[in-house]
Design a protein around this nucleic acid. Sequence first.
DNA 1: GTGCAACCTCCAGTTAAGTCGAGGTCAACA
DNA 2: TGTTGACCTCGACTTAACTGGAGGTTGCAC
Lengths: 154, 154
Amino acid sequence: MSALPDHLSIGEVATRSGIPHTALRFYEERGLITSTRSAGNQRRYPRAVLRRLAFIRTAQRVGLSLEEISDALHTLPDQRTPTKADWAKLSKSWQEELDTRIDALQRLRQRLTSCIGCGCLSLRTCHLSNPGDAMEPLGPGAPRLKPRSEGGID
Amino acid sequence: MSALPDHLSIGEVATRSGIPHTALRFYEERGLITSTRSAGNQRRYPRAVLRRLAFIRTAQRVGLSLEEISDALHTLPDQRTPTKADWAKLSKSWQEELDTRIDALQRLRQRLTSCIGCGCLSLRTCHLSNPGDAMEPLGPGAPRLKPRSEGGID
DNA sequence: GTGCAACCTCCAGTTAAGTCGAGGTCAACA
DNA sequence: TGTTGACCTCGACTTAACTGGAGGTTGCAC
């Protein structure tokens, strides 16, 4: 527990962030974080990397891809003071995305809630499994190569 | 637009659900949906599969994995009338999961909102990137092999 | 000055969720 | 009877996000 210096080794960052060193190198490769090197070519991170990592992990947890996160972080001028407009742009685009996701989650939860209450006992008939309202503005699935065109259902 | 029979071919299901036939076979392989076969060995789906697929896609969209969805669907007695207790159990476990996710999303959004307002112009100092509150009950990342132990940050 | 853990690079492997293509079958119409 | 389109299986490939190992270097404590 010595006072942390400002130049953390990859091991220290891994320990303090809970993120494996392999993942840290991977993030660096992908441009999500950066490091300088010591005389002997070892990575040295500024302390701020921990906050950046926390941000990355939070965004990731809510379903944003590393690419989206990376893009977002890169709309901010890379080394120096982003303008308020930069921030506003980033925030706005994410807010829409987040709103959409929150909405979808709440609708799913709502369906579950009402289903429990409604006394229906089968997936076959329950409206839980029968959307009714518009859905699927985004395609799911891992390979986000081409957006799939969602047809109407039932 | 002939009146839909109750035994849909894979092509019909694909068209009506907007889900590629390749994915349908994949879901079947994973046990998320089932089919019977025609005399000539072609898949035949009951109409109800469309609702089931809508449910799957919705759940997937909000970030649940096919495995989680499959598990959930399998807590319901497979072919006949699940009891109210079955439903309650499934619903409850999902609700917690959904609540957690909604919460995380809202916190992230809140941080973005307040950040815009606070006038801070750098990720380095903004509390947006500095969680402060407890987070990461679930690990992110694709390989969910071993849950990662999240250390404290900064 | 030696030993060993922590670091380095490079590359191959893994998982989830599919996609794609080859090679073959079936059904229905002309 | 022929051919065309929808279907079948099987296996290889893709993308994102990592993990793991081999083989070599650094840093620092004794």
